[in-house]
Amino acid sequence: MAHPAFDDFLPEALQFHAPEPLVDIGANLTHESFQRDLPAVVERARAANVTTLILTGTDLEHAKQAALLAEEHLGFFATAGVHPHDASRWTPALGREMAALYAHPKLVAVGECGLDFNRNFSTPTEQEHAFEAQLALAAESGLPLFLHERDAGPRMREMLKSWRDDLADAVIHCFTADKETLYGYLDLDLHIGLTGWICDERRGHHLRPLVSDIPLNRLMIETDCPYLLPRNLPSKLKGRRHEPALLPWIAREIAHWYGISEAELGQATTQTAHTFFRLSAQQLKESA
Results as ranks from 00 to 15, higher is better:
residue 181 T to S: 13
residue 17 H to D: 01
residue 29 L to M: 14
residue 240 R to V: 11
residue 160 L to M: 13
residue 162 S to Q: 15
residue 284 L to M: 13
residue 120 N to T: 13
residue 78 A to V: 03
residue 37 D to S: 11
residue 31 H to L: 12
residue 166 D to L: 07
residue 118 N to M: 09
residue 44 R to K: 08
residue 70 A to K: 11
residue 213 D to R: 08
residue 201 E to D: 15
residue 67 A to V: 09
residue 285 K to G: 09
residue 178 D to V: 13
residue 280 S to C: 04
residue 288 A to E: 13
residue 94 L to M: 15
residue 245 A to C: 09
residue 255 A to E: 02
residue 257 W to G: 00
residue 231 R to P: 00
residue 127 Q to S: 10
residue 261 S to E: 07
residue 164 R to T: 02
residue 94 L to I: 10
residue 197 W to I: 15
residue 9 F to A: 12
residue 121 F to H: 15
residue 138 A to Q: 10
residue 271 Q to F: 06
residue 206 H to K: 09
residue 259 G to L: 09
residue 285 K to A: 14
residue 179 K to I: 14
residue 168 A to I: 00
residue 152 A to L: 09
residue 272 T to Q: 07
residue 227 Y to A: 08
residue 92 P to G: 11
residue 222 E to T: 03
residue 63 A to Y: 12
residue 100 A to C: 08
residue 224 D to P: 01
residue 26 G to R: 05
residue 253 E to R: 05
residue 109 A to D: 09
residue 248 P to D: 00
residue 244 P to I: 04
residue 25 I to W: 05
residue 199 C to E: 01
residue 243 E to K: 08
residue 130 A to F: 13
residue 233 L to C: 06
residue 164 R to M: 03
residue 262 E to S: 07
residue 226 P to Y: 04
residue 46 R to I: 03
residue 106 K to G: 00
residue 91 T to I: 11
residue 231 R to W: 04
residue 239 G to W: 09
residue 184 G to K: 02
residue 63 A to D: 14
residue 267 Q to G: 09
residue 17 H to N: 01
residue 20 E to R: 11
residue 204 G to A: 10
residue 187 D to T: 00
residue 62 H to L: 10
residue 2 A to W: 02
residue 122 S to V: 10
residue 247 L to Y: 02
residue 76 F to N: 03
residue 177 A to E: 08
residue 122 S to D: 11
residue 45 A to K: 06
residue 133 A to T: 09
residue 100 A to P: 14
residue 264 E to H: 07
residue 173 H to T: 03
residue 208 R to N: 07
residue 66 A to Y: 09
residue 120 N to F: 06
residue 133 A to G: 12
residue 62 H to Q: 15
residue 223 T to F: 02
residue 74 L to A: 15
residue 29 L to I: 12
residue 55 L to A: 06
residue 99 A to P: 12
residue 259 G to R: 09
residue 193 G to F: 05
residue 156 M to C: 07
residue 255 A to G: 01
residue 214 I to Q: 00
residue 89 R to D: 13
residue 166 D to R: 15
residue 11 P to G: 11
residue 54 I to G: 06
residue 153 G to A: 15
residue 286 E to I: 10
residue 247 L to R: 07
residue 8 D to H: 14
residue 224 D to M: 10
residue 235 S to W: 06
residue 214 I to H: 00
residue 162 S to G: 05
residue 61 E to A: 15
residue 83 H to M: 10
residue 108 V to Q: 15
residue 222 E to A: 04
residue 54 I to D: 02
residue 176 T to W: 06
residue 156 M to L: 10
residue 86 D to Y: 14
residue 37 D to K: 05
residue 137 L to E: 11
residue 202 R to I: 11
residue 218 R to H: 10
residue 279 L to I: 12
residue 13 A to F: 00
residue 150 R to D: 08
residue 188 L to Q: 02
residue 160 L to I: 13
residue 134 Q to S: 12
residue 51 T to D: 13
residue 78 A to E: 08
residue 100 A to K: 15
residue 76 F to C: 06
residue 139 A to D: 01
residue 94 L to P: 10
residue 67 A to D: 03
residue 202 R to W: 12
residue 280 S to D: 06
residue 24 D to C: 11
residue 252 R to L: 04
residue 208 R to I: 12
residue 283 Q to P: 14
residue 69 L to V: 02
residue 212 S to C: 10
residue 115 L to A: 08
residue 269 T to A: 07
residue 253 E to Q: 14
residue 279 L to Y: 05
